[in-house]
Design a protein around this nucleic acid. Structure first.
Lengths: 225, 225
DNA sequence: TGTACATCAGTGAACGCGCGTTCACTGATGTAC
DNA sequence: TGTACATCAGTGAACGCGCGTTCACTGATGTAC
């Protein structure tokens, strides 16, 4: 037995329960009893519930940011001028996002956790993630910036988050949507199928025409960049 | 004084706190002390915390479905052939979505509600809301079907949900995103500004080219390129 | 090689606390006769 | 008009419960001399 079977039992169980019900609704007693581990073990190994939540995130985000960094290295080596087509960037992100949970428990858990982290208003978790993993996202958005020079910075920011919303909402609520889809269309939907459908939608959204300028208001002269 | 000033004080305060921190993280003591109302008043007037949450939801969804129905009546009267352009349908939905919370407190509560309706894992709440308010959404999607005859049914279903994800994610996590946007671009974002940005993105996404058909399936000879 | 101590994962029970809910009660207003 | 009772919004205090955390403890293994 490894020196801490207990630690991974806790993490495995916690990520499933967190994804199912959220952080506040999952108690340490839920986790430890389902993991068949002593209640005090969470505080012994992690220090607090908050720290456990962050540890659950790290198990996904550490390998993700590592893989994503090296995938971007490969891309940058391939395009010597530093301008990587948008489709390639999105494709790479999709591949990396799908690769990580394939080894772990589920894509749904990962997406649900990301969604919870964003919607969590207070944001200690959000700030932790930003501080810990912000650089790989910064690098990605910089590459997207070069791929879409015609987009104002603010517009690009919002469109990336619009698409993040699409992906997180769809993949984290996949069970519910599958339910509805199966009832309406008698169709079984796989994650690969969804990604196939998502691709042209995301590309079209990023390439949509710019919204009309606002003229009135105060003199909104935000020079982006 | 109305026969129950207390009831509306509770509802007004509850929706603000629910929007700020979520349902589980908001206690009845938080609500009643901020509303300067007796703790027991919630259970007296509503019966339980769960019933209070549903009452908060109803204050948004009842007027929303009512208004949306009559807005669709108007549109159908205006287009005698029964085919309403997609842009009009989306515009109408956006207007209705924004009109309801304008009288009330926050768009965010409303968006959280819609998000919950979908992402609630076990789905008893989802099915309740589907049963209570499903007809207006069914009516809307039927009109969208007529406006986009070139889309296969399943494709339309998924694209509508992709866009629902964008809107729910963006507007329900607005505070977090505003935070990030303000830090990166020193720009204050209003809801109206966001809707202006969303419009071309949603239209482009709905009109995106169809994804390539899947041909192979079982004999998995995936061309890696 | 034997003894003493240190380290460490894990445990069982308890702690204080905030939670949703309940209950006996008040006091104002309405209704019946 | 007077009396008795009913209804109802609201109250203060307490209830039991599950929560995250703490603490003294065990027993196995490692280390020093």
């Amino acid at each position: 037995m490894a020196q801490s079977d207990t630690v991974s039992r806790i993490l495995d169980t916690a990520e499933v329960l967190f994804a199912e019900r959220g952080f506040a609704e999952t108690s340490l007693r839920n986790i430890t009893s389902k993991a068949r581990v002593n209640l005090a073990a969470v505080n012994y190994h992690f220090g607090s519930k908050k720290a456990l939540i962050q540890a659950v995130f790290s198990r996904y985000l550490d390998p993700f940011s590592q893989r994503f960094h090296s995938a971007l290295d490969d891309l940058e080596a391939r395009y010597a001028d530093g301008v990587i087509p948008l489709e390639e960037l999105l494709e790479t992100m999709a591949t990396t996002v799908l690769a990580v949970p394939a080894e772990r428990n589920s894509l749904k858990v990962f997406m649900r956790l990301l969604g919870l982290a964003y919607s969590q208003a207070q944001g200690h978790l959000r700030r932790h993630i930003q501080a810990q993993y912000g650089d790989v996202f910064t690098r990605f958005t910089e590459l997207v910036r070069r791929a879409t020079p015609e987009l104002p910075d603010a517009e690009r920011f919002w469109r990336l988050h619009f698409m993040l919303g699409t992906v997180i909402f769809t993949l984290s609520g996949l069970d519910a949507l599958r339910d509805i889809a199966a009832k309406d269309y008698h169709e079984q939907v796989t994650v690969r199928d969804l990604v196939r459908r998502l691709r042209p939608v995301v590309v079209a959204a990023m390439n949509a025409p710019l919204p009309p300028e606002i003229e009135e208001e105060s003199h909104a002269n935000a020079h982006p960049g």
